[in-house]
Design a protein around this nucleic acid. Structure first.
Length: 364
DNA sequence: TAGTATT
């Protein structure tokens, strides 16, 4: 059964600890200032499954200098790298860049996802395993209603209600993530088996399954690897993930863009391009406004697939865009769809010209 | 009756 998220009403998390609080170091501690990254360290959620560490760094590096960043992955099993857990952390050097990243990249649509960028809470065992699974919710209960019911037990970080994708009707199932695990525990005690006001049936509240004990995910992995193989033949694992996501995109996303038949032998771009680390398909974007910046290019091309790099060409003295830029995409078919869809696209009062960059090394 | 937010 297909479900979708009814809404997200994300809570913008800010750190509880005021930055002005100064921790006095004892004589046994280092005389360095205590590390306070509460104004520079961000958590990024709802990243596309196929986004790599390099793309992640490239996207957030376009805002400002990064002190460190990490795409969180499943524990490595055997010789394979663990798959992305769909979130990551970015710690900027300058707090202003962290703020800018929230303002410009929060809500950015990448493929089928809308990413969320917010300040990371200080890491602590007390905030882990604070996610609840709620079932038996009355159909008319909205996300806001559910939050009101649960908020008496603590600070809610995220909440969602699953709905039938066709009818839009609530499936009576939702999630509530609290700031602290102890708050989640209290909510279970207080609400599990209880009838919400006016409801005829009691709700069930329990801890959500942990991603580590995955059975459905292993099944999904198997499904899309075998599905992708039918279309692509024996390709690299990572390539197969890209291909399945293509199929999902055609099914769910980018509906407003003209669909293009997926060519099944076009994912080898990175392999064919002489092994350079910059391998990919370079796209030329013309007729950008003087005010255009990298985030515009990410927003335009991100929905079509894996983007490894974007660059706006600027005048050296004025720092204004000279009217063009470049985008590098990993997969030929995604690049081709982006070009076919965005060439002639009207951006403000300008009509974009988008094509593969014409240079010898990128021709077949 | 299941999505994925703490390195």
């Amino acid at each position: 059964m297909v479900t979708q998220i009814i809404s997200t009403m994300e809570t913008q998390v800010s750190n509880g600890g005021p930055a002005s609080t100064v921790i006095q170091n004892g004589p046994t501690m280092s005389n360095n200032c205590p590390t306070d990254d509460s104004k520079t360290n961000l958590i990024v959620n709802y990243l596309p499954q196929n986004m790599t560490q390099e793309e992640f760094k490239s996207l957030f590096g376009s805002i400002g200098e990064i002190e460190s960043c990490k795409l969180v992955r499943d524990k490595i099993t055997g010789t394979e790298k663990g798959q992305s857990l769909g979130y990551g952390f970015v710690n900027y050097v300058d707090p202003n860049d962290a703020d800018k990243a929230i303002n410009t990249l929060n809500g950015l649509k990448l493929q089928t996802k809308t990413i969320k960028v917010s300040y990371a809470r200080p890491s602590s065992a007390s905030i882990r395993d604070a996610n609840l699974y709620v079932s038996g919710l009355p159909k008319p209960m909205s996300q806001k209603d559910m939050e009101q019911l649960f908020s008496q037990y603590g600070r809610i970080i995220t909440s969602r209600i699953l709905v039938d994708q066709v009818t839009g009707v609530s499936r009576g199932v939702g999630f509530i993530r609290f700031d602290k695990r102890i708050e989640a525990e209290e909510a279970i005690k207080g609400l599990n088996g209880q009838k919400p006001l006016g409801a005829s049936e009691p709700i069930t509240v329990k801890f959500a399954n942990n991603p580590s004990q995955k059975t459905g995910q292993a099944l999904l992995t198997h499904l899309y690897q075998t599905t992708a193989r039918r279309y692509t033949g024996p390709l690299h694992h990572q390539t197969q993930r890209f291909r399945l996501d293509n199929l999902l995109n055609v099914a769910y996303g980018v509906k407003r863009f003209s669909p293009i038949t997926i060519d099944s032998m076009t994912s080898l771009a990175g392999v064919n391009l002489t092994g350079a680390s910059t391998a990919g398909w370079c796209i030329f974007v013309y007729n950008l406004s003087p005010e255009a910046d990298e985030s515009v290019l990410w927003q335009l091309f991100g929905p079509f697939g894996a983007v490894t790099n974007v660059k706006v060409i600027r005048d050296f003295t004025t720092n204004k865009c000279k009217g063009f830029g470049f985008v590098t995409m990993t997969n030929y078919d995604e690049a081709a769809m982006a070009i076919a869809s965005l060439n002639g696209y009207r951006l403000g009062d300008r009509v974009l010209q988008v094509s593969f960059k014409t240079s010898k090394q990128h021709k077949a």
